[in-house]
Design a protein around this nucleic acid. Structure first.
Lengths: 156, 156
DNA sequence: TATTCAAAAAGGTCAAAGATAGTCAATCTA
DNA sequence: TAGATTGACTATCTTTGACCTTTTTGAATA
C-alpha cells in the first residue's frame, strides 16, 4: 500500500469516530508515517480537496495545525459544480450577478448574502488599474472563494 | 495550547466579570505565565488591537501598569468609521480578517456572512498576477463594497 | 525645607531564533 | 507516463532577549 493511501485512511478513520472534523500536526503525522512533511500536503491536495467534499484550514508557527472538515455533498452539489466546472477562470460582472441570483433563488444563500457577494464582484470593487481580463479572472477567483465558504457551512 | 492564547483567554476572562476594563502589571503577568515580559506586548498587539475592539494605555516606572479597555460603539457608527476612515485605500489580508471578525462579534453580520467575506478578501481570491500593493488596494475596495451592502440593510 | 539626581522600577521596541506549515520542481516507481 | 515521494526554499506565527524610555523613589545637598 502506498504511503499516501495509508495517510488517507488514517485520517478518514479519525473522522469516522463521530466528528466530521480532525485536527493534526503536519510534522507529527509525517514522522509517524516516516515520510516528508510535504507529503501530507500532497495527500490533502489529492484526497481531501473541495471537489471531494473536504475543506482544510491551517495555521503556521508554534502550535500550528491542519484542520480537515467534511462537508455534506447533497446540498452542495450545485455549489461544487459551480466552483469546479462552471466558473472556470474568467467571469464577467453580468455572469457573476446571474449566478448569484440563481444561488439566491435556489435558497443556497440569503438575500443579504447575495448583496454582499454582488458587492464583492462589482465593478466598483475592482476599480483598480488592471486590464479587464485580469478583472474577470479576479472575479472568478473571488466568487469561487466565497462559494467555497458557502459550501463549508454544510458540515456533516 | 500556545502561551499567547492562554494569556489572551486569561485577560478576556478577567473582563467578562462585569467590567469592560482590566489593569495589569506586565512583569507579574509574564512571571505568572513563565514567559518573557515582551510576550505580553505581543499578545496585546495581535489580540487586543483597535481593530479587534480594544484600546490600551500604559504607564512605566514605579507603579506602572497596562490598562485594556473594550470599546463599545454603535454598529452603524462603526460601519461608517470603517468605510470612511479606517479602511482607506489599502488593506492587508490580516487586517481585513480582523475587521471581519469584529463585525461578526458585534453581530453586524452572521458567521456565514463572515466566512463569505473572508473568502472574498483572501489571498486565494486574489491569486492573479498583479503587484501586492494593487491587491491590498483591491481588497480595500472589495471590503468597502461589501460593507456598503451591509450598511444598506437594517436602516432603522 | 526644597532641590537635585542617580538608582530602581516599571513598561516599550525590535530583531533574531524557533516552530510550524506551504510550494514547487526534480526524481522515483509501478 | 501518471501518480507518488522528496527536499530545498519560502511564508508565517510565536517566543525570547538585549537594549531603550519613562516614572518614581529616596538619599544627599543646598
Amino acid at each position: 500500500m502506498r504511503i499516501s493511501d495509508s495517510i488517507e485512511s488514517f485520517i478518514k478513520e479519525l473522522m469516522t469516530d463521530g466528528s466530521s472534523e480532525v485536527e493534526l500536526r503536519r510534522n507529527e503525522l509525517a514522522e509517524y508515517f516516516g515520510c516528508a512533511p510535504s507529503q501530507i500536503n500532497y495527500v490533502l491536495a489529492t484526497r481531501f480537496s473541495p471537489d471531494q467534499g473536504y475543506l482544510t484550514e491551517s495555521r503556521r508557527g508554534g502550535g500550528g495545525y491542519i484542520r480537515i472538515v467534511r462537508v455534506v455533498q447533497s446540498g452542495s452539489q450545485w455549489l461544487l459544480y459551480l466552483v469546479n466546472q462552471r466558473i472556470g477562470d474568467s467571469l464577467t460582472e453580468d455572469e457573476a450577478l446571474r449566478l448569484i441570483t440563481q444561488l439566491r433563488d435556489r435558497q443556497m444563500i440569503t438575500t443579504d448574502e447575495a448583496y454582499i457577494m454582488a458587492g464583492a464582484v462589482s465593478a466598483k470593487a475592482m476599480a483598480v488599474p488592471i486590464p479587464g481580463e485580469l478583472k474577470d479572472a479576479l472575479r472568478a477567483r473571488t466568487l469561487k472563494s466565497m462559494l467555497t465558504a458557502v459550501a463549508g457551512r454544510n458540515r456533516s
